[in-house]
């Protein structure tokens, strides 16, 4: 396991006024994304190596895990919201690139952190983001367009113990017959976080959670061609809403 040492430079703003008011500190915040399988950390070295078991008992390995986080904002006690106009493609194959530094500083204080898994419809515009196009993150227009929310690919063992691929891709649900879409992005809100210094907030993603509650997922029934499967996308989204993302440690 690689330990990342974060050097935190805290910026102290000194007040010049003659009275002794405590200055309000401006701090910067980073989000750090970690992944686990029901608590066991998943790192790059686990890719194609470590076998996990999902809720319905299928043994599987993970080859690729990338997912998109957008619309990060911090809401303080007075319900003032600071929105950060950025998104982050998390790729566990790129361990040096698992943090998102929020582009603006905030005042110290107590906050709730809000973010979205995937893109809400308004943001999910085909071809709009050149950096995402450049890493092949698009969804073909025939499958509703926009961008992937997640690519979780790997191999599972079927009931006969034979290795089979799975492509667990989360996208906006699209019904091609009716040409209707359903927003399957997930908005997540953490409990209150007290931020006093420059901080790194860990966001944990439990990959096992995608395969359970409320929809226990049987890979023997559905494992590939999920992008154009309206019901599958709704099920994935429902599973994502229940406990896949959680707040981890806060370093400050």
């Amino acid at each position: 396991m690689k330990k990342i040492i974060l050097s935190i430079f805290s910026l102290v703003i000194l007040s010049c006024s003659s009275d002794n008011d405590e200055p309000i500190k401006e701090i910067s915040v980073k989000l750090k994304f970690t992944q686990n399988w029901d608590g066991t950390i998943i790192e790059r070295s686990d890719l194609e190596n470590t076998e996990f078991t999902n809720k319905t008992g299928s043994k599987l390995t993970i080859s690729r895990l990338r997912y998109l986080i957008s619309r990060v904002s911090l809401v303080n006690g007075a319900s003032d919201t600071t929105k950060f106009d950025s998104y982050k493609l998390v790729d566990i194959n790129k361990p040096d690139n698992l943090t998102l530094a929020l582009p603006e500083k905030i005042s110290e204080g107590s906050y709730k952190l809000l973010f979205t898994f995937g893109f809400i419809d308004k943001d999910n515009i085909s071809s709009a983001y050149t950096d995402l196009n450049s890493v092949d993150w698009n969804v073909p227009d025939m499958m509703g367009g926009g961008y992937h929310f997640m690519q979780l690919d790997g191999q599972y063992k079927d009931t006969l113990g034979i290795k089979n691929p799975y492509n667990f891709h989360a996208v906006r649900a699209y019904n091609s017959e009716k040409d209707s879409i359903f927003d399957t992005s997930i908005s997540i809100e953490t409990g209150s976080i007290l931020l006093k210094n420059n901080a790194t907030i860990e966001i944990k993603m439990n990959a096992a959670g995608w395969f359970k509650s409320p929809n226990d997922w049987n890979l023997n029934e559905k494992s590939v061609d999920l992008m154009g499967d309206f019901e599958a996308q709704k099920d994935i989204s429902e599973n994502g809403k229940s406990g896949v993302f959680s707040l981890g440690t806060i370093t400050q």
């Binding site: 196009n133 092949d136 698009n138 073909p140 227009d141 025939m142 499958m143 154009g228």
Partner: peptide
Amino acid sequence: FNVFMDEARGDCFHCHGSDNN
């Protein structure tokens, strides 16, 4: 092109780019 892009037919776009890449 549709065969290339369709996940249920060719599914080539996941590795070989697309109209957007």
